[in-house]
């Protein structure tokens, strides 16, 4: 999908979230000089094209009681990454799953997933179970718990992207 200037104006107008009014798309249209139907048509097209990944809420997991957040990384043989990642991504405790490059020798891991849980012990148990169920006990892995969060919303451009 090729975005034009009008689409970009619209993206900027909804970047900080929807107005809390009964007809939010009409309110956004007022800001950018489009009528409600046109706003809906363009946003819907962006959603179908994948420019907008989804429309809805983003929760702050910490405030929901998910106090432990771990980046779980694996060193999976390259020819198995896709199959293994597909299975990891289906685990209910996993919220993101990416293949990324290794940075040898300091960083040997090529598959990253995020696991959130109500506490650290629970997350460790979930990772254990996942490894056992998928036959990954012998695959090198590391579990990187977060200690501190500095910014969850900094870059304006990033705040709306995943």
């Amino acid at each position: 999908m090729v975005l034009n200037d009008t689409d970009r104006d619209l993206i900027a107008a909804v970047q900080d979230g929807l107005p809390m009014v009964a007809r939010p798309f009409a309110a956004i249209g007022d800001r950018v000089g489009l009528d409600e139907a046109e706003v809906i048509r363009r946003l819907d097209a962006m959603l179908r094209a994948g420019v907008i990944k989804r429309f809805g809420v983003v929760v702050r997991h910490h405030e929901l009681g998910y106090r432990a957040n771990a980046m779980v990384v694996w060193d999976i043989p390259d020819d198995r990454v896709e199959a293994v990642a597909g299975e990891i991504a289906r685990c209910p405790c996993v919220t993101l799953c990416y293949q990324r490059p290794r940075r040898l020798p300091e960083w040997p891991y090529n598959l990253f997933c995020m696991v959130h849980g109500r506490d650290r012990g629970l997350v460790e148990a979930q990772v254990e179970q996942m490894a056992a169920r998928l036959g990954l006990q012998d695959v090198p892995r590391a579990v990187l718990f977060s200690r501190r969060r500095f910014k969850q919303r900094g870059a304006r451009y990033a705040s709306a992207a995943e």
């Binding site: 999908m1 975005l3 993206i11 909804v14 970047q15 900080d16 979230g17 929807l18 809390m20 009014v21 009964a22 946003l43 962006m46 959603l47 094209a49 994948g50 420019v51 907008i52 990944k53 989804r54 429309f55 809805g56 809420v57 983003v58 929760v59 702050r60 405030e63 929901l64 969850q152 919303r153 451009y157 990033a158 705040s159 709306a160 992207a161 995943e162």
Partner: peptide, 29 residues
């Protein structure tokens, strides 16, 4: 509307709206 507004004000929700695909918007991530 009121409940979503409150959940946002209480910071339970960080966003209410679209999540963009940075690369498809032409950005780097």
């Amino acid at each position: 509307i009121e409940r979503i507004a409150r959940l946002r004000a209480d910071n339970v929700l960080t966003r209410f709206g679209p999540l963009y695909h940075a690369e498809r918007l032409g950005g780097g991530l």
